[in-house]
Write a protein that binds this DNA or RNA. Structure first.
Lengths: 251, 251
DNA sequence: TACTTAAGTTCTGTCTAGCAGAACGTGATT
DNA sequence: AATCACGTTCTGCTAGACAGAACTTAAGTA
């Protein structure tokens, strides 16, 4: 059973500042991430640790706001407002128009899926992706979050971030581009990645990582990797230039 | 100045049930829709009518949940969690895999942009869209909401919805497919649309509207419209079949 | 350099609105 | 019939959200 802000005891994280009711509302929304799209009142209650009556009340507000909707069968679903605002978020990066064509070109010339990742706290977020035409391919969706410590794109986001503390091992691995990873994030997947820069508030900064990935059965050999790497370097340079980072190719 | 739940007086809408704090939080998020992605504390306060101190407190929760983020320059932006949940919403329709290829085929054969609209309360929502290659084209983004009473797709969503009350005028206009609109939503745009059905909980129901649209300079003549209409009818039928609505082509 | 205006932030006493939890209704499943 | 699980309604208590003033920067303006 849940308890209200326990001020004395084992002091559970005890979020500083903020509004309890809002935290709960967001917890309800976030619970849907692991229950693919549909949840009953009881499920929500269980997943969040909130009383059913509490969920009911908060859900009324969420529903009114269009962040949640309820079907006749009583199941809750996420609401259209999330969709609208989510796309607004994606577009607020204002780089979609530049990234998409680059990804398409990469898919075209390499035949494999291409993605653009940005760092988001301690994970990396797939902001854009274009799928290869191959029937068998690795699967990452736009919006998915992956760990920062595995996979070529993850290494790039840490190793080429001027603000990050980089381990000696990673630093040496970052010595030359492109970065290659085979079977790291997933045993059957290989990936090649390069950094992308942009002109930011305080000069040139890391914008994200451009990556091409696919099953290692198609990508593992050095010649294929060389070709993919060449395409990535070219497109990455192009994209960085479009983002106003002319000469920042090297850290 | 804002006031708390006014129980007596002029009784402003007076939302039934729900949680005030959550309503406010959602109002803050929704305010971003009209201020393209970035807002200062003062702007939020003004747009929502909430005190700055209140916004600050609620924003702390939103930020913690990843629904909002704050930059060094103090401006708030929407957060990545919205992006994730938004895409989850889109995918919860589970029809993306079927709709995308259909849209691509339409763009390929007609040369114009193709979209899939669903009804969302009293507006229509662009759930998926594939852009034409033409430099000059009409502009509708995925996630955008348009009025229900204008444009071919809007008519379809009302006229072919078995639950909707349909005016005599609209009914006669719906007599034969496809539906065509020229210069309705926007003076320079022409569109052609057909309904898409699916097997739902209580039998076959309207799933959405499939539409092809572009500048009327390219679409207005009857021959072009005939061709687009033929492609739409074919793809719409195909899509409906994929969604389990075999013989429901006519209302 | 001093004055003005506006933005962001911190603090606190008051009071209300959100909460827990019990109680109830309803429909499946056994 | 009996049990179970789910959704919903209701209520008294009090913790926690709120308004608003006060303070701190920061950027104009003259």
């Amino acid at each position: 059973m849940p308890s209200r802000k326990v001020s004395g005891e084992g002091a559970p994280p005890k979020a500083e500042g903020g509004v309890d009711a809002v935290d709960r509302a967001l917890a309800i929304l976030s619970a849907f991430a692991s229950h693919d799209g549909q949840m009953s009142l009881a499920q929500i209650s269980e997943a969040t640790g909130l009383y059913k009556s509490t969920v009911l009340r908060i859900a009324a507000s969420l529903e009114r706001g269009g962040f949640l909707s309820r079907q006749e069968n009583k199941l809750y679903r996420l609401g259209p407002q999330l969709f609208r605002l989510g796309l607004l978020y994606q577009r607020s990066f204002k780089i979609e128009d530049m990234v998409r064509p680059v990804l398409r070109r990469l898919v075209e010339t390499t035949g494999e899926s291409a993605s653009f990742f940005v760092r988001q706290g301690e994970v990396r977020l797939c902001l854009f992706r274009e799928e290869s035409q191959h029937a068998v391919r690795d699967h990452v969706m736009e919006g998915a979050t992956l760990t920062l410590d595995r996979g070529a794109a993850g290494h790039v986001l840490v190793g080429y971030d001027s603000r990050a503390v980089v381990s000696e091992e990673l630093r040496s691995r970052m010595a030359r581009l492109p970065i290659v990873s085979i079977g790291e994030r997933s045993a059957e997947v290989a990936a090649v990645a390069v950094p992308v820069y942009r002109r930011g508030a305080g000069g040139v900064e890391l914008a994200g990582a451009l990556t091409v990935s696919g099953p290692r059965t198609r990508i593992a050999d050095t010649e294929t990797i060389r070709q993919i790497g060449a395409a990535l370097l070219e497109q990455g340079r192009l994209l960085s230039r479009q983002l106003g980072a002319d000469e920042a190719w090297r850290l």
